[in-house]
């Protein structure tokens, strides 16, 4: 209910660096969807949020998902809403993409592809890291 009023989550100028690290494929477990919902909710706090996709987490962003046959909600379009929530820093680990035969063109959103080494640096700079 609080998000109906702008400023309720005003943290008085204290902006922390939050990183969500997604490591799970989208439909076999509930982790990917739960993590996405957490990102959307936390966007109300207006922190410096970034989302990283590594390991099977890169599959969350795969184009062409059609879940009609398995009776589950296809939540891949929701990643495209993140920009409107001011969550614009999306990172994908290069090694994870390559191991799965994927390229940036296979993904539903624009991302920055980072090597494990670059991502490791970025993770180390965070105030809070939430991994799922």
């Amino acid at each position: 209910m609080e998000d109906e009023f702008e400023g309720t989550f005003d943290t008085e100028g204290v902006i922390k660096k939050f990183m969500f690290v997604n490591r799970k494929a989208p439909y076999g477990t509930i982790y990917a969807l739960e993590s996405l919902e957490t990102v959307l909710i936390s966007a109300a706090f207006e922190q410096d949020t970034s989302v990283a996709f590594v390991d099977d987490g890169v599959y969350q962003l795969k184009k062409g998902q059609d879940t009609t046959g398995i009776n589950m909600k296809n939540f891949s379009p929701t990643y495209r809403a993140l920009e409107g929530y001011d969550v614009e820093k999306l990172y994908v680990e290069k090694e994870s993409l390559e191991a799965r035969g994927l390229t940036e063109d296979d993904l539903v959103v624009d991302v920055e592809v980072l090597s494990a080494e670059e991502l490791s640096e970025l993770m180390d700079e965070q105030d809070v890291v939430l991994s799922a």
Binding site: D3, F75, R80, A81, Y85
Partner: peptide, 15 residues
């Protein structure tokens, strides 16, 4: 239809 979620009010206002 486009994003499969209902937007938070802040996001709605902006959109």
């Amino acid at each position: 239809n486009e994003y499969q979620i209902a937007p938070a009010v802040r996001v709605l206002v902006k959109a």
